[in-house]
């Protein structure tokens, strides 16, 4: 009797988490998927309309702005964060005496809320009071930097703030990758006559492909989810110039009372993230095997 109880105990312990996730994640996904096929407005409705919301979604100018912005933001954010992260990692790998002091400074923004980051940068980039004003005070009268107020450039300020927040983290990932490269391979390369940056370019960086992949996955998933930063930095504006899918979903669902369209935009976000994450997790689990 007791033995049987002991056999079932592990399942019973895992069961609450299993059911919570089954309902609150996968059940909710199905529910949202269902809502996206209904004519729900302010409240959920169960009138089936098929893919009408999706058709409507892709005709909406705001959604197309959001998707275009996500593409711009995603590419620049991932590209610049990776470039800065790699550069700093390589530089920090040069036997820098103060590494223990410098590294935490590069990384601390990751501990902050995007709301705090947004608040700081919003003001810093404000032409009336921040950088531009300060430069004028310093006597550089022609200095001009008002991207945050400019419809065409505001999305780039989101990139700046996001890069500020995450590039240190990418640096830490790359640094761990660099330190993980087998020392003997580097010695062999040195004996073969390779020097300096050629060792990095030809030997080390190609060996860090898994780190690039991890960094890409993490950053891409952060980019698609990006919400708080835009809210705090630009509020989606000026106008709706910095709309992203995440802000679009929120405003259509909760302020514009177009729940069906909001739900369909959430489904599109999920598809975007899963198309990156699922293959990655699958390959990691397979490679990791059963430990």
């Amino acid at each position: 009797m007791i033995d049987r109880f002991q056999n079932w105990l592990p399942r019973m312990v895992l069961a609450p988490s299993f059911f919570l996730v089954l309902i609150f994640v996968y059940g909710f996904i199905l529910y949202t998927g269902y809502l996206s096929m209904t004519d729900s407005k302010m409240l959920p409705s169960y009138n089936w309309v098929g893919f009408a919301n999706y058709e409507k979604l892709f005709r909406l100018r705001h959604w197309n702005t959001a998707i275009t912005n996500l593409a711009i933001f995603g590419i620049l954010y991932i590209g610049i964060s990776s470039a800065i992260g790699l550069l700093l990692a390589i530089l920090l790998d040069q036997k820098i005496r103060a590494e223990g002091f410098i590294r935490p400074i590069y990384l601390y923004p990751m501990a902050l809320s995007f709301i705090v980051t947004g608040t700081a940068w919003k003001w810093f980039l404000d032409p009336g009071i921040g950088l531009e004003n300060t430069m004028h005070q310093w006597g550089w009268a022609s200095f001009h930097f008002n991207w945050i107020k400019d419809r065409n450039y505001a999305i780039y300020t989101v990139v700046i703030a996001a890069v500020w927040q995450s590039s240190g983290f990418v640096m830490a990932m790359f640094l761990a990758g660099l330190r993980g490269v087998d020392n003997e391979i580097i010695k062999a390369a040195q004996i073969d006559g390779a020097t300096g940056f050629r060792i990095y370019r030809k030997i080390i960086i190609p060996m860090m492909r898994p780190v690039f992949l991890s960094a890409f996955v993490v950053l891409a998933h952060l980019a698609i989810k990006a919400y708080d930063l835009v809210v705090a930095l630009t509020g989606g504006g000026p106008g709706r110039a910095t709309e992203l899918p995440a802000t679009f979903m929120y405003s259509y669902t909760f302020t514009r009372n177009q729940m069906g369209v909001g739900a369909s935009s959430a489904i599109i976000m999920l598809i975007m993230i899963f198309s990156i994450i699922v293959p990655y997790v699958y390959s990691e689990l397979r490679a990791g095997g059963k430990r």
């Binding site: 996730v21 994640v25 909710f28 996904i29 949202t32 979903m249 999920l270 899963f274 994450i277």
Partner: peptide, 24 residues
């Protein structure tokens, strides 16, 4: 089946939370 449970938990880490807002 415990590996399946883990897979479900792991994948749940990455969902965009917008997807659960309405039902939640």
């Amino acid at each position: 089946g415990s590996d399946l449970v883990f897979g479900l938990l792991l994948l749940a880490c990455f969902i965009p939370f917008q997807i659960v807002l309405i039902p939640m």
